[in-house]
Nucleic acid binder design. Structure first.
Lengths: 221, 221
DNA sequence: TTTTGTGAACTAGTTCACAGCT
DNA sequence: AGCTGTGAACTAGTTCACAAAA
């Protein structure tokens, strides 16, 4: 057990995303009672590349045992720590429209330990209400208070496109440094702020593009 | 106007996504009354790289005029055709949970011309209902009928993770060749089927990773 | 002049292949 | 024997820089 920390070498976003995938794989294996695995086994079962798994993990330490592989629960613990999931991650959802409400109740978030602090909206008639699962809707001013108090780790932006930049600027000014944005269009954030976009229109149009290119055709054998 | 079609050279997914972004930029410009633009102007305004815009477009033809740039409405028309948006793109949403309902009412889809055919679910008590915006909820059997009749271009999967693979297999068997999947976990599809994943857990965990790495720290000037 | 379209150069990301450890 | 960890080789993607066109 060496656990070198290579002086915070820059790690690509792609690697970060894959770590999350690996963690999910390990959850599945653990739930199935598997105690030990290997990069090859993981790769085969989840359609990944074995060398890539090893390389991704190697950024953070030496978690495997040569000749054996990885201990599932141990590697899981490491990955959770690397991903920052070993402490509560507090998420605020900005915008209590259809999408915001759906995200607030999304099971996947709770499962991996994210704490949904609340929904926040400016519409007075929404404030005081709650999602189906009981997440409360607060005024945006309340979000500002929480964020300034350092109680928000990640802001999820689910407001209409017109207000998105304004809302993001506000969140950043309140000290939020990580944002998951669902509104369309490119937002600008300053240095040191991490913005991740989920653009539903772009996703659908990529599929449409595929179909338009003849992707729907039967490939000639 | 040469409009060479380079024999359906393979185009990367990244390029496809950017075309969609360019189209949105052009919509903004057109709405602002701008008649002509250039790769440099687009790049500056929307934080893109000029050479990349030109290269992306060059896969599909020569749409620009040297010394002038691009005519906004003309390029828009080309992009819409390239993305397959010059004909109705029919979208079915599988799973009438919170997320499915939110997606059915998502404004962005209608705006760019996607036709939401309906919501589809197996839960008998949901069938016959509708989303807030009035999208009807049908039985999944109805989806199979539509898909077999070639009336569905894209299936959006918003069912619980446990059923996702099964639902995707069903859709593919009914002739659907493009799928936008919101359920977590890696799904398998055969050759010639395009599967695009939107993994909310992975997105959030990437942000958590960034924060855990010290991303929240003030960078030293 | 301006700006496109594009080969060449560069950068980032992935996979290979093997030394080294168990 | 088996599997990790990792440099080297390779592939994909981006940016540069300039000839050609308007």
């Amino acid at each position: 057990m060496k656990n070198k920390r290579p002086a915070m070498e820059p790690v690509s976003d792609l690697t970060a995303g894959r770590l999350s995938v690996y963690l999910r794989c390990l959850n599945v294996l653990e739930a199935g009672g598997v105690k030990t695995t290997s990069s090859k086994a993981l790769a085969a079962q989840f359609h990944l590349n074995a060398a890539q798994i090893r390389k991704d993990l190697a950024y953070f330490g030496e978690f495997g045992v040569r000749g054996v592989g990885y201990y599932v629960s141990e590697l899981k613990t490491h990955l959770r720590a690397i991903l920052g999931l070993d402490r509560p991650v507090r998420v605020a959802i900005l915008g209590a429209g259809n999408l915001g409400l759906a995200l607030a109740d999304y099971q996947g978030f709770q499962e991996e330990g994210f704490a949904i602090i609340g929904l926040f909206d400016t519409a007075a008639h929404k404030v005081g209400g709650k999602s189906r699962q009981g997440v409360l809707i607060h005024d945006l001013a309340e979000f500002q208070r929480c964020a300034h108090a350092g109680q928000i780790d990640i802001a999820v932006v689910a407001v209409p496109a017109d207000n998105a930049q304004q809302v993001v600027d506000m969140a950043v000014n309140c000290g939020v440094r990580a944002i998951l944005n669902f509104s369309p269009g490119a937002l600008k954030v300053g240095q040191g702020i991490k913005l991740k976009n989920v653009d539903l229109t772009v996703s659908l149009e990529s599929l449409s593009f595929f179909l338009a290119r003849g992707g729907g055709d039967v490939p000639d054998a």
